[in-house]
Amino acid sequence: MSNASAPQSEQELLNARLEQANQQLLQSEKLAAIGQLAAGVAHEINNPVGYVYSNLQTLDNYLNDLFRLTEAVDNARCIEDLRQIKQNIDYDFLKDDLRDLLAESREGIERVKTIIAAMKDFSHIEEEEFKPADLHRGIETTLNVVNNELKYKAEVVREFGDLPEVECIISQINQVIMNLLVNAAHAIETFGRITIRTRQKGSTVVVEVQDTGRGISPEHRHRIFEPFFTTKPVGKGTGLGLSLSFNIIEKHQGTLDVESAPGEGTCFRITLPIVHPDTDNE
């Protein structure tokens, strides 16, 4: 009996080390994914910052014009002078345009805010425990983060059903959904459609990410969840996205399935238990 307990503990040690290695891999894949996204997010932020910044410079000119008018109130000899200045600075245009300028700039700042909030929501590095979470919110957050990767490649269609809160590590589920969305966008040659479907099925929830891309060829089908397997050009993919997604879903006691028809598209289906079995026992 004592003989058996030694290999047992050794196995436990190995298991623990494997688990640790898996964690590290997960973390580095997350960082790689965020790194890849960073360029895209910079683009997303530079656009609104671009016009807000330019609008502020224009606002400066508008203000100078307006001050010229208000200061003339003290110096002008007659009302006719004031009218002249008002006409010179194109007051009517200025008045209309100021409103637009402010509204557009506010819209820009709102967009930057949304992106930053989504990045924060998305990463959630501190949260590593199973907690009830709103999957739809997670999906929206993820969509905001990868918007730049998607918007030039596909129209995103949401077919959301009613979902209860699901016990999961939401940051990890977000990461899986991000992988699926980015893969879907990469699979589309010119412009297509990505459909995100959610529904409750008994004691589980189902999230589907379907694209109208080139599909997965049958000889690749059984390899897609292998670590480091990728058909993307060097530098485009780490080959870890799907294998880690698979691990994450497995850890959640769920399943990740794929259906694909070459030339027609691919559908990834995540099935997750609403109540995580381990926490159920506690």
Binding site: N47, P48, G50, Y51, S54, N55, Q57, T58, N61, D97, D100, L101, E104, E107, G108
Partner: peptide, 15 residues
Amino acid sequence: DERNILSALRRLLKP
């Protein structure tokens, strides 16, 4: 493709 960029540039180039 961003309309607000176009408006900002229009303002800038108007004078």
